[in-house]
Structures are given as C-alpha cells and as structure tokens.
C-alpha cells in the first residue's frame, strides 16, 4: 500500500484504540511529537522505532515499508490475546507463475455469513487451487486461536495461493 509513514502510524494507532497522548506516554515523547509524525511533519527517532512497532503490533519493516510480511508464521494465540473474530481478516494471496500477485482481503465476519449461507469456495472461486479449500475448517482453526499462514497450495500451472488469518 502506498501510504506515508505518518498515515500508517495513525491507522495502526486507531486500530489499537490508542489516543495520541497515550501513545506518546508509552514512548516517552510529547503528544505533539506524535501529531507531527502522523501529519508527516517529522519522523520518529530511530531509537523509538522498535518500541513504536511493538506497541502498534507490527514489525519495524512493516511500519516503515507499509508492506506486511507475506508469510507470517502460524501461531495459536492464548485466549487472552485473541482478537474478536469480527475484527479479523482473511487474506488470500494468489501469485501467478508469471509474476502477477492478487490479494483479496475478506473480513472473517463475512466468511462466517458465507458459511451460514451454505457457500463454499468452489461456488465463488474459479481458481483451481482454491476450489477445495474448506472454509468451515479454517473458521474452526481461527476459533481455536490460529493465526498466520494457514493454507498454501500450488496449482499445476505453477500458481500459488496462500491464505492468512490476522
């Protein structure tokens, strides 16, 4: 995504439901400093990047580049660390053998509605690699706390499809 560092900080801060002064306090800086970062007037000092990224729940690389790691490891989160499914995302990343990449970002709440409606992947996806994906199974794993790279398949044409939950 082509956004500025300031906008990413603001977005991530909102996702963590932090106010500017709360973030400032955690970092030991003034709220005005955070405001200037978010308006791209200044940048955070390099010594703060690691802590800032940790507070915002991303890696330093993601914070600076805006690009999420394509292959986050699979983890099972303890119950107290799990997000509400209504705020979680299922990302499908399809990489063609010739190099094109398509990403579809679907809220898990919509996947739940799809499952309750009796939909399965073969009805909505023409991609051969996706047709046999069991959405019910994926949702069961998510309800048990699984996040990260859940599925990775490769079609006969060399296309790969990865499904992440975050």
């Amino acid at each position: 995504m082509n956004t500025t560092l300031g906008k990413r900080i603001a977005t991530l801060r909102h996702e963590k439901e932090l106010k500017q002064d709360e973030l400032a306090e955690k970092l030991g800086v003034s709220p005005q400093a955070v405001s200037k970062w978010e308006n791209d007037q200044t940048c955070p000092d390099i010594s703060l990047l690691l802590l800032l990224a940790k507070i915002l729940g991303v890696s330093v690389d993601e914070l600076l580049s805006g690009k999420k790691a394509e292959t986050p490891a699979v983890r099972i989160l303890p119950e107290n660390e799990r997000k509400d499914i209504k705020d979680m995302m299922l990302r499908i990343v399809a990489t063609r053998a010739k190099g094109d990449v398509a990403r579809v970002n679907l809220p898990l709440s919509i996947i739940e509605v799809a499952i309750d409606s009796g939909l399965n992947m073969s009805q909505v996806s023409g991609n051969e690699a996706l047709k046999n994906i069991d959405l019910n199974r994926i949702m069961d794993m998510v309800r048990q706390g699984t996040i990260g790279n859940i599925v990775e398949v490769e079609s006969a044409d060399g296309d790969t499809v990865q499904i992440f939950v975050e």
Binding site: T11, K98, V101, N105, L106
Partner: peptide, 12 residues
C-alpha cells in the same frame, strides 16, 4: 477499518 482494501493487484 477505514483503510480496508478489498482487492489489491500488482502486476509483474
């Protein structure tokens, strides 16, 4: 989630 992108496509 105001920054939600439904689809992103990047060509080679």
């Amino acid at each position: 989630h105001a920054d939600w992108n439904l689809v992103e496509f990047e060509s080679k």
